[in-house]
Amino acid sequence: MTLAPKDVSYVRELVFDRSAIVLGEDKQYLVESRITMLARDLGLGSAEEVIARLKRDGDRTLEERVIEAMTTNETSWFRDVHPFNALKSVIIPEAMERNAAKRSLAIWSAACSTGQELYSVAMMLDSDFPELSSWKLDLVGTDISRKAVEKAQSGLFTGLEINRGLPATMLVRYFVRDGSGYRIRDDIRNKVRFGVLNLIEPWPPMPLFDVILLRNVLIYFDMDTRRRILGLAKQQLVQGGVLILGGAESVLSLVDGFVPVTIGTTTVYHKDKENV
């Protein structure tokens, strides 16, 4: 069933209004399919009915569900692989050297979705950096979607989700079967914390991070918003801290004060020591 263009626009505008995420005009099919699935979840007859309710009732909870439905993306473990290799071979060792005296490390997964990215980091640190077991680790994951954050906190994943990019050795080492799915082990779960955060709203107080992962989320924002978020991210990094973006994304020309550094096939951005 095709949604009327004005209904599609309504959804696109609502999403932009609340989250600054831009859904282009070509996203008709995406809006239809996601809202139809949401209708099914809610026991409503159709996508049209969901939108009619939104317009009629001004229901904040329903609005939140719609935004969640439109902004959730598929995610995988160790996504793209190479950035994690860069973390392992260069970025973490450098951070450990820098922090040798205070023996603490802080990493933020800033569009963490259902948690795979942050848990991947936690597993990598546990398996490749045993020295860190006596350090203070602050591993933080945030996302605009409450539903995604709750799922991340649960540490529960379906078989289909587990298949996505998780090395078999990690599956064996860090997960247990839980019903028809899998649960990440408590010792890894206890190393991380998740919270809801809308990148365009004021950020809560947070530590300064050695690494910020902001991957594949800037593409959904317009230029001004991207600039603003990158500026804030820079302030949230320690001196010499590193920003990691998604494969096709770049900071250049948007914000000063980042120095691109290529490690293998990955380009990351160092907070420039000269320009604070």
Binding site: T158, G159, L160, G179, S180, G181
Partner: peptide, 9 residues
């Protein structure tokens, strides 16, 4: 529920 989840997946 488990059977359902497996089959739907």
């Amino acid at each position: 529920d488990m059977i359902s989840e497996i089959t739907l997946e």
